[in-house]
């Protein structure tokens, strides 16, 4: 306990501003069934020397290094470079690899282009398959059963709840990524961005736009809680 207090007393100026008070980050309550199973399997694998702590830490670093900023870079490049866009739509994985994004999980990637005639929406009804190499971890709502079930039954109603009204004459294609390929939506480039640089364009592209639940707009609203994730 003494050590913990000491830890909490130190200067908090490490990487992010801490101008807001918050409760101590601590584990409360008993770990769940799958948490216990994960710990048990991990400890057994380490104990039997099948994997080491360094490999686990390394993989966590790999996962942490993937964020929607990578996907945004891909989208912005596709908007400014017609040849890249063509290659991206022909083979999502190799085009992303051109930009230095590796596919550590050995998945293929299909990039689906939104147009004024077609709107694409991505879901995984069986679990939470997601293009992690280019977007990082999926948002919590993507994993909830309500989204997973309703996205394939009433996509227009689900989109409306995200504030996205799709006109009746626009075709909706819902891609259920359950098997082995991952999907990324290439959103429409917003009007009024003709003079934007590639970096300025990338800053507009949000995670949710690349899942297909919202369009890209000139004023991207901050994610809930004010933190971009």
């Amino acid at each position: 306990m003494g050590q913990q207090n000491q830890h909490h007393d130190h200067d908090h100026d490490h990487g992010h501003d801490h101008d807001h008070p918050h409760a101590e980050i601590a584990q409360t309550g008993m770990p769940g069934y799958y948490e216990i199973m994960e710990t048990a399997v991990r400890e057994l694998l380490v104990e039997r020397r099948l994997i080491g702590p360094d490999e686990i830490r390394r993989q966590i670093e790999v996962l942490d290094s993937r964020t929607p900023a990578l996907g945004a870079k891909v989208v912005a490049r596709a908007w400014v470079d017609a040849d890249f866009r063509r290659r991206l739509l022909a083979n999502g994985r190799t085009a992303c690899e051109e930009l230095g994004i590796s596919f550590y999980d050995d998945t293929q990637l299909i990039v689906l282009e939104n147009t004024d005639k077609v709107h694409n929406l991505i879901v995984c009804t069986l679990c939470s398959c997601y293009p992690r190499p280019v977007l990082g971890l999926p948002p919590d709502w993507y994993k909830l059963k309500a989204y997973r079930a309703r996205a394939v039954v009433e996509p227009r109603a689900v989109l409306a709840e995200f504030g996205t009204i799709i006109p009746d004459d626009v075709e909706i294609r819902v891609s259920d990524s359950t098997a082995m390929v991952r999907y990324l939506v290439l959103p429409r480039r917003p009007d009024g961005t003709e003079g934007f640089s590639e970096e300025q364009l990338a800053a507009l592209v949000t995670r949710d736009a690349m899942i297909g639940v919202v369009p890209v707009t000139l004023t991207a609203p901050p994610a809930p809680g004010g933190t971009l994730q």
């Binding site: 039954v153 996509p155 227009r156 075709e171 909706i172 294609r173 819902v174 098997a179 390929v181």
Partner: peptide
Amino acid sequence: RVAVPMTAIWADYRGNAADSLRIEV
């Protein structure tokens, strides 16, 4: 990658008749 019309999956589907579900099988 196959396409199935939404109206063929859900009898009471509401939306554009061209709306579809895509999946790899």
